[in-house]
Amino acid sequence: MFDFDALINCFGMASCAVNQLTSGLIIGMLLFLVASGLTLIFGVLNVINFAHGTFYMVGAYFAFSTYLFTESYLLSAFVGALGAGIFGIFFERVLISKVYGQDILMQLLVCYAFILITDDLVKLIWGTDYIAMGIPDEFRLAPFRIFGGYVPPLYAFLIILSLVIGILTILLISKTRFGSIVRAAAENSPMVSALGIRVPLYFALLFGLGCALAGIAGALAAPVRSLTPGMGFGILIESFIVTVIGGMGSIPGALIAAIILGLTRSIGSVGFPLFVDGLMFLIMAIVLIFKPTGLFVKGSSK
């Protein structure tokens, strides 16, 4: 099951090492965008958004339709994020806010029903076909060669962009007025309301922000990942793993956990290709056993 020779060989060669490390990074960074939205929503609203993958899907589809008309990758990514964000606010206001503070199982059920409905709606609007947006012309370039390894320009761009979005989100939450209100409301919502601030509005905006992060990940990945109804399903479980390992509520934790996961997959594909999934769940279990609050959050579960 484990092929250590292949691993050692790979890391003995600069080209192989570059290939696997960068592929781990690109997988990790897109995952980070999705997971950061999930962890943000949990951290502030204490809601687990089981429907998070849906917003990733919606972002990708919105981006695809925009791209059809405008042929602009950046504009379509923006529309994807905005669309997913607005859709997220709708979901928050109309559905999930009705079960705030209730049993986690009620939230699970609302999210599940929402996933079913959205998947079928996507099928009705865009059809069941495999859709590929195609790689935008400006990124149809030969890959960069670094120490003999390959790095596609699109991926280099995505890694940097995801990092920028991640940092902006952290700044938004920690440094702005919006961020401080939201954090305060998370701690003590009646107190913040008493100051005349419309807490539900801020909560909805934050929820929308989380969904927009998932949406932009879907939109940015749309050129290289085929679009199908139900595509949010696979990404959901991986973002859960990231959120749990990084600590629920911690965006920097999600970043590091996402990179760990990306590297596990890219290194695993060389050394233990058949056990990558098993190992991911094992890491999650070990973290939960020894530090349930996640690697990067202080505190305990008890």
Binding site: L95, K98, V99, M106, L109, V110, Y112, A113, F114, I115, L116, I117, D119, D120, L121, K123, L124
Partner: peptide, 16 residues
């Protein structure tokens, strides 16, 4: 033929 849509709506009605 839209089983997911209908099932989703039924669950939503029961829950909410």
């Amino acid at each position: 033929s839209h089983t997911e849509l209908v099932t989703g709506i039924i669950i939503m009605i029961v829950v909410l």
